[in-house]
């Protein structure tokens, strides 16, 4: 079933995708499924999602794993560690 999500990007993901947020319609079941769809949206998305080893995900402001189900969720945020001080 298709659902509408608010996707938030932080730090280098935002830098590469060139927007802090977007809305997407998706039938993805898990975070990982959604990432696969986002990766295919544009070369910018592909670059942003090329290396997710250090990136963490929050579903409705709650830290989750890549295998977490999206069911009932509304907002998915992708945020890596920031380095600067």
């Amino acid at each position: 079933m298709m659902a509408r999500y608010d996707i938030l990007y932080f730090a280098w993901l935002r830098e590469r995708i060139a927007t802090p947020r977007e809305q997407v319609e998706s039938a993805a079941v898990t975070v990982a499924d959604l990432v696969a769809e986002l990766r295919a949206r544009s070369p910018r998305h592909a670059a942003a999602f090329a290396d997710l080893a250090a990136v963490r995900v929050a579903l409705d402001q709650d830290l989750v794993g890549m295998d977490a189900p999206l069911a009932g969720g509304r907002e998915i945020a992708f945020f890596p560690p920031m380095t600067g001080g």
């Binding site: 280098w12 080893a53 250090a54 830290l63 890596p80 560690p81 920031m82």
Partner: peptide, 12 residues
């Protein structure tokens, strides 16, 4: 929270 150090170049 952040177990993995990003690959060089990812986090300038």
């Amino acid at each position: 929270l952040f177990p993995v150090i990003p690959a060089p170049g990812l986090a300038p």
